[in-house]
Amino acid sequence: QVNIAPGSLDKALNQYAAHSGFTLSVDASLTRGKQSNGLHGDYDVESGLQQLLDGSGLQVKPLGNNSWTLEP
């Protein structure tokens, strides 16, 4: 069960990665100043990332080996 409060997208993504045990490689300029609506409930990694990114204009991309990145 994930419980991440709304706020900074950077912070939300870092909390989610730490909670879910995956690696997220992101260029900080992509997420700077963006906000997230947070995340509450049970999600697989990709669904949770998509939910956190909702409205940010960013997309999640798998890199393999439980690693992910973001792209515009």
Score class of each variant (00 low, 15 high):
1 Q>M: 14
1 Q>V: 13
1 Q>E: 12
2 V>T: 07
3 N>D: 10
5 A>P: 14
5 A>W: 09
5 A>L: 10
6 P>W: 04
7 G>Y: 01
7 G>K: 04
8 S>R: 11
8 S>M: 09
9 L>M: 05
9 L>D: 00
9 L>K: 01
10 D>V: 08
11 K>D: 15
11 K>W: 15
12 A>W: 04
13 L>D: 01
13 L>R: 00
13 L>Q: 02
14 N>W: 13
14 N>A: 15
14 N>S: 14
15 Q>R: 06
16 Y>P: 01
16 Y>H: 02
16 Y>K: 00
16 Y>E: 01
16 Y>S: 01
17 A>Q: 08
17 A>W: 03
18 A>N: 09
18 A>T: 08
19 H>P: 00
19 H>Q: 14
20 S>M: 15
20 S>Y: 15
20 S>E: 11
21 G>Y: 06
21 G>C: 10
22 F>C: 10
22 F>P: 04
22 F>H: 03
22 F>Y: 02
22 F>A: 07
22 F>K: 01
23 T>L: 12
23 T>F: 12
23 T>S: 09
24 L>R: 00
25 S>M: 13
26 V>R: 03
27 D>T: 06
28 A>N: 08
28 A>L: 11
28 A>E: 13
30 L>G: 07
30 L>T: 05
30 L>R: 00
30 L>C: 12
30 L>A: 06
31 T>V: 13
31 T>H: 00
31 T>G: 05
32 R>K: 14
32 R>M: 14
32 R>G: 12
33 G>V: 02
33 G>N: 10
33 G>R: 04
33 G>L: 04
34 K>H: 09
34 K>C: 10
34 K>M: 08
35 Q>S: 11
35 Q>R: 12
36 S>T: 15
36 S>N: 02
36 S>V: 04
37 N>G: 11
37 N>I: 09
38 G>S: 01
38 G>C: 05
38 G>I: 02
38 G>D: 01
39 L>S: 01
40 H>F: 13
40 H>G: 03
41 G>K: 03
41 G>D: 03
42 D>S: 13
43 Y>A: 00
43 Y>H: 08
43 Y>R: 01
43 Y>F: 11
45 V>S: 04
47 S>K: 11
48 G>N: 03
49 L>S: 00
50 Q>M: 14
50 Q>L: 12
51 Q>A: 14
53 L>V: 13
53 L>F: 03
53 L>Q: 01
53 L>R: 00
54 D>Y: 14
54 D>I: 15
54 D>V: 15
55 G>S: 06
55 G>I: 03
55 G>M: 05
55 G>K: 06
57 G>F: 04
59 Q>S: 12
59 Q>F: 10
60 V>H: 09
60 V>P: 15
60 V>Q: 07
62 P>D: 10
62 P>T: 08
62 P>Q: 12
62 P>R: 14
62 P>W: 14
63 L>Q: 07
65 N>V: 09
65 N>H: 10
65 N>G: 11
65 N>D: 11
65 N>P: 13
66 N>D: 08
66 N>Q: 05
67 S>M: 14
67 S>R: 12
67 S>A: 13
67 S>G: 08
67 S>I: 14
68 W>E: 02
68 W>K: 00
68 W>A: 01
69 T>D: 05
69 T>V: 12
70 L>M: 05
71 E>S: 08
71 E>C: 10
72 P>K: 11
72 P>M: 10
72 P>N: 07
